[in-house]
Design a protein around this nucleic acid. Structure first.
Lengths: 234, 234
DNA sequence: CGGGATCTTGAGCTCAATCAATAAACGTGG
DNA sequence: CCACGTTTATTGATTGAGCTCAAGATCCCG
């Protein structure tokens, strides 16, 4: 089960600079008395919330990775986003809606529970928060649009290659942890396990990539880039 | 070319109840002196803005329909959203970004130009606007997630059928204008012209749908629903 | 070391893309 | 209003990318 680890201490929070409170002056935080969100841990595969549940709290991811998935009645599922440290999620209640997807940890995680009522109040009183949230929503929307292009207009190899390039873009040349199974990569890109596996094996043989214990490394980005644009002039 | 039709008169605007200013009391509008956005018209296929352009103005759609598209270097394109009356678009500048997609009218349209600087100011002074925009961003994000599920997890027939059902859901049983070509429906759903045409013809023959001069009607929604869930238990 | 999960690889098949040829709809000017 | 050309849609034939099914291989954990 999920576990309440304690109360958050926003003023000393290690990841505040990544959160929606990043722009908030520290002294302002001190003024906010009542606000001490609980920090909660979840184990892998322990659902944080389910699609359809009433959304009364949002979360900030403090540690680990989370996948947001949508599932069809027949069981086929789509990962709509992979969250990283500092990401805000579960805010559908702000629009009077229930959660539109299910949130599942990809590793053991630690989140900060933000009751929407309190968050709304904070947001009203601190334009910096409002602003940061707005920027993030716009950013998410842009990423969602990018993903629609991937899913709607690209072929299997192109999707997988550009996914790998994106995934590894901040660890240039080095190893990146890849805590997603073949199946999950497939659910993210609209492909089957087998298709993902085939291309990855292929690219390993060709020396484009390297893999080891849940980590991946791009060895020949030019080769991958070429695979990302199979038919011609990208 | 695009045409400046004149200055908007927000207080008497016919579509204000659909816009981001819907929640704003009319008397508040009267107090806002400087704000008189220009109303501009564009003809079909005349681009409102291009992916990559600096985003300094947002728009509210007053009349007609707009498609937002993303294009791959090789020419394949994806429609990421179809806008309706009252929709706000082109706000990437709020996040310091340039436009992430290209906006093209599907019919002759009329838009309200909203310089982001002025809009930002208005938003600061009127929490109702802020709030409405937030709700819309969340709503868009939800729709984008829904679309990712369509594109990533459904087959051709399922995508097309559920698109038709969604498109017609507000005109129950009656005719709905469908100003999208086969090609555009394909670009929206990640399919080719031929695939779209084949299923539509098929469903016309089966009496599920009816079509006439750019309008469509669902005659047998149960039949379509079945097509929307080809493999089993949805 | 054993056994469940995950990954790989092969073979065959199916759905949708591609290629190609009409057919229908539309707009334009006579 | 009709003839003409252009665009858009339909339909068929064929191909091929990616799915499905199946059998091993590898990894991982107790």
């Amino acid at each position: 089960m999920s576990n309440i680890k304690g109360r958050g201490h926003c003023q000393t929070c290690q990841i505040r600079h990544l959160s929606i409170f990043a722009q908030l002056p520290v002294n302002r935080l001190a003024e906010i008395q009542g606000f001490q969100p609980s920090v909660v841990t979840y184990a892998v595969d322990e659902t944080v919330y389910h699609q359809g549940d009433v959304s009364a709290t949002a979360f900030t991811l403090r540690k680990g990775l989370v996948k947001l998935i949508k599932t069809l009645p027949n069981g086929r599922t789509q990962i709509v986003r992979v969250l990283r440290t500092g990401d805000l999620f579960g805010f559908d209640g702000f629009a009077g809606e229930s959660y539109n997807h299910t949130a599942i940890p990809l590793s053991d995680i630690e989140v900060c529970r933000l009751p929407l009522g309190e968050l709304m109040e904070l947001k009203k009183q601190n334009p910096e928060i409002e602003n940061t949230m707005m920027r993030r929503w716009i950013q998410h929307l842009r990423e969602a649009e990018d993903m629609m292009l991937e899913l709607g207009a690209k072929k299997a190899a192109e999707r997988l290659a550009s996914f790998l390039i994106r995934w590894c873009e901040n660890s240039n040349g080095g190893w990146s942890p890849l805590p997603l199974s073949r199946g999950e990569i497939g659910e993210l890109l609209g492909l089957t396990i087998e298709t993902v596996s085939r291309f990855l094996s292929d690219w390993k043989r060709q020396g484009f990539i390297n893999e080891q214990r849940g980590s991946i490394q791009i060895e020949d980005i030019a080769g991958l880039r070429k695979a990302a644009c199979s038919s011609g002039s990208c």
